[in-house]
């Protein structure tokens, strides 16, 4: 009798606990939902209105892809896209090399002034873009480097890219590459390099056969980050490009001044897609890197 009462009381108690959990789960999910909505609703609007069959970006008037066609016919946009790609590729390549070397120096060697270099290396991550942009602008001006263009034929597109823009992008990308590569290096057991040396590999071959392959996921991750940042950068490009040079973000900024049309939405949607793609690749690569530690990396 009393046993039954006890078990009933217990089951009521567990029911109550279950109800509590359901309510808290619901609240938790709702909170998450609103958070995401807040973050992504503007993006959804942006994408949706890139298909709007009207010059207005506020009122829906039916589906069209003609803004995309319009965009592709706009030589200014295409040229700025090539400019963006060129700047991103060159600055990424240079900053990956310098950034990786910097990471190696910081993680593997002791030298005079290391502490100061540690601070200076990460400065571009911390300081506001605008401060960096103005610093670079003043630097190019007074150093006499100026805004000379690099005239280059890039896959058939005739570009004139100021060296100053590329140098500016390299300047901030080095920091990001160095941070990512250094994190990877810190995880890597130094005894592996000793093992290679014990097996007759000199420092050069130790680097290429052991250190580099193990760092590669980090280096690629850093490269993708640098590439994305370079493609997206507006402030530093705007200040270091002199007159008449546009990357895609700078071009979009110029178009907005003449009024917002769904064509801008279309360009932005494309940039968004591109960025998402890069993030996806970098995620796959970094997962591949983890696998390299556990069960073999299909990349190598």
């Amino acid at each position: 009798m009393s046993e039954q009462a006890l078990s009933r009381a217990l089951s009521r108690r567990s029911q109550l606990a279950r109800l509590k959990k359901q309510v808290s789960d619901l609240l938790f999910h709702a909170y998450g939902f609103w958070g995401y909505l807040f973050l992504y609703f503007p993006i959804i609007i942006l994408v949706v209105f890139s298909f709007n069959d009207s010059r207005s970006t506020a009122q829906w008037a039916g589906f069209t892809t003609h803004w995309y066609a319009d965009m592709l016919k706009d030589h200014q946009i295409i040229l700025s896209l090539w400019n963006s790609l060129f700047v991103a590729i060159v600055s990424t390549t240079v900053s990956v090399i310098i950034g990786t070397l910097a990471a190696l120096a910081m993680e593997r060697y002791r030298f005079w002034g290391k502490l100061m270099m540690d601070a200076v290396l990460y400065l571009p991550i911390i300081i506001p873009d605008i401060a960096m942009a103005i610093m670079l602008l003043i630097f190019f001006d007074i150093s006499g480097i100026g805004f000379e263009p690099w005239k280059v034929n890039f896959f058939g597109a005739h570009l004139a890219v100021p060296y100053s823009v590329i140098i500016g992008h390299v300047a901030f990308n080095i920091s990001f590459v160095a941070v990512v590569v250094r994190a990877r290096l810190a995880q890597m057991d130094q005894v592996l390099e000793e093992a290679a040396q014990d097996l007759y590999a000199d420092p050069w071959r130790t680097f290429w056969r052991v250190t580099f392959p193990m760092l590669l996921p980090g280096i690629l991750g850093g490269a993708l980050l640098a590439f994305t940042l370079s493609m997206d950068d507006f402030v530093i490009t705007f200040f270091t490009s002199g007159a008449g040079f546009n990357t895609l973000p700078v071009r979009v900024f110029g178009m907005i001044k003449k009024g917002v049309t769904p064509k801008i939405n279309a360009v932005s949607t494309l940039m968004l897609l591109f960025s998402l793609m890069l993030v996806a690749i970098s995620l796959i690569l970094s997962r591949g890197g983890e696998k390299g530690d556990s069960s073999g990396n299909p990349m190598f």
Binding site: D189, E194, A195, D198, Y200, D293, N297
Partner: peptide, 17 residues
């Protein structure tokens, strides 16, 4: 790398890649 000895390390130090 110029010594005629080889080492077996405490945690093996096998190359994971």
């Amino acid at each position: 790398y110029q010594r005629p000895v080889n080492t077996v390390f405490q945690n093996y130090a096998l190359f994971p890649h």
